[in-house]
């Protein structure tokens, strides 16, 4: 697999769209290209952020935050 092909696969990989047979080939290429591959994959994860930011924020109830903070403080206190 060339690095250009690896880049295509990386973008599919980060959204979980690689099929199992492609995944094996991808992992071999990932090991072959080393740090360059890891850096590109990290960059591709920026797609996740972009997809989330493309949505209009949703409102959640204040009770969620209260429950969350109570759980966190309880956990920290134990």
């Amino acid at each position: 697999m060339s690095f250009e092909e690896f880049k295509k696969h990386s973008r599919l990989y980060v959204i979980g769209a690689l099929e199992s047979e492609e995944l094996e080939e991808f992992e071999r290429a990932r090991a072959k290209f080393g740090k360059k591959a890891e850096d590109f994959i990290t960059e591709c994860y920026g797609l996740h952020e972009a997809f989330a930011l493309s949505l209009r924020p949703a409102k959640s109830s204040a009770a969620i935050k209260e429950r969350l903070m109570a759980m966190v403080r309880e956990k920290k206190g134990t």
Binding site: F51, L55, P57, K59, M69, R73
Partner: peptide, 30 residues
């Protein structure tokens, strides 16, 4: 914990929108 509270205030809307887009159910999303 206060840092988590700040993080929650800043990003809960974005994350809730993402979750809602996946599960399509308000209560489950919360």
């Amino acid at each position: 914990p206060d840092a988590l509270a700040q993080l929650y205030d800043r990003y809960n809307g974005i994350l809730k929108a993402l979750i809602l887009r996946v599960v399509h159910n308000e209560a489950e999303a919360d």
